[in-house]
Design a protein around this nucleic acid. Structure first.
Lengths: 212, 212
DNA sequence: GCTCTATGTAAACAAGTGCTGACTTAGGCA
DNA sequence: TGCCTAAGTCAGCACTTGTTTACATAGAGC
């Protein structure tokens, strides 16, 4: 009674290639998803292409077919994250809205997709091009925060505000990393509610315009 | 005119085994130092034992002789960091003193020893025992922060204070990681002075008793 | 039904990995 | 001086890694 898989259908990582019949786009997505999890959780060099392929329920050689190399797959993951995170920049959003979005992302469950995205920004393959993508993603994201806090690129001493936005980003990333990769309690299993107050205070202290 | 190396003499990592003649303790230290840098900067699986040995100016096989395995060397690094960081716990220190110490550590130059120590706490080899050491180091360190802020283990809802101390730790680690492993400016080349104000505010917001 | 191409499979290769065992050598000591 | 042990060296093994190459096959178009 299995219907043929449609393109882009949700596939649980646990039951990978259950019903999938020679659909290139679909296997590409399976690989991307599995790779993002592995890379985010264990880093680039720790994860093997065989691991990723197994998670995706797909033959190893297809990684090279669809992404040229392990490196290419990593870059693709990074680009995807960049697209997902790059959106909310722009001065039209209020600082409250921006911080709220950061809060929900950080407070996501440690194995959730948002967590994986943020973690990936901390992983490096050593390759220059990948590092470039990561850097520009981080830059545009932190500039988005700063902008919504009143920052204008170029204005000399407002570099301080950009610096503060980057420290806010560092806090977010640090919390996510500590939550997911060490079992440090109570942080590791703190709920979104638990985190809201302290994290909110920190972010407000850093970049809320009244706080300056 | 070279004098024989005394035990524990400082050895620049750039000129490793210049004058050193069959001194086991000294080569052990050379290996530890080189390993800590490599592991902290590039992670466990990225660094090879041959890299470490080369940095230390020492034969590869000596790693296994002195530390049993690559894993053993990693654990030794972790233990060393635990000893160095474990000291300043205790309720005798004031919160100001504790935060001051954190500040100077985080604001250390991105290639400095303090930075390496903190970075190492974010690296994992996947081995359970190593992870245990890392976790207990993080735990004791964050408990030290919380304690100097008035926390008493066990008191029920003061878990909030411990959580705040752990978020403070996350901030510190996040800043260090972002500074050293991405070239994100202006954070990457911010001076200690640049960082003092914003970081100080964040830490105070989190764990300064008056801030509650 | 037949064919032809996109998709997937299987096996193997070259390079690099951690680690080991047999060897050499420096340097203290009788 | 001449051992003798600790310290260091060297070559290679067993294994994993990313990648490639040759092959199998599903499924659309005729």
């Amino acid at each position: 009674m299995r219907v043929p898989t449609v393109l882009g259908a949700k596939q649980d990582a646990e039951t990978p290639a259950a019903n999938r019949s020679r659909d290139a786009a679909s296997t590409r997505l399976l690989l991307l998803k599995a790779a993002r999890r592995r890379f985010a959780r264990h880093g680039y060099s720790t994860t093997t292409v065989r691991d990723i392929a197994a998670d995706a329920g797909v033959n190893v050689a297809l990684i090279n077919r669809y992404f040229s190399s392990k490196e290419g797959l990593f870059e693709a993951c990074l680009r995807q994250v960049g697209e997902d995170l790059g959106r909310p920049a722009g001065s039209t959003t209020t600082i409250e809205h921006t911080l709220e979005k950061m809060l929900t992302r950080v407070a996501d469950q440690p194995s959730g997709d948002h967590t994986m995205q943020l973690l990936l920004l901390l992983r490096s393959s050593g390759d220059d091009r990948a590092d470039q993508i990561r850097l520009s993603t981080l830059r545009s994201f932190t500039e988005g925060i700063a902008t919504s806090a009143g920052w204008q690129a170029g204005s000399a001493d407002d570099d301080k505000l950009l610096l503060r936005a980057q420290i806010a980003m560092a806090t977010a990333l640090g919390v996510v990393l500590l939550r997911s990769s060490t079992g440090l309690e109570p942080l590791a299993s703190a709920t979104a509610e638990d985190l809201r107050d302290p994290l909110g205070e920190v972010l407000a202290t850093l970049v809320a315009p009244t706080g300056l």
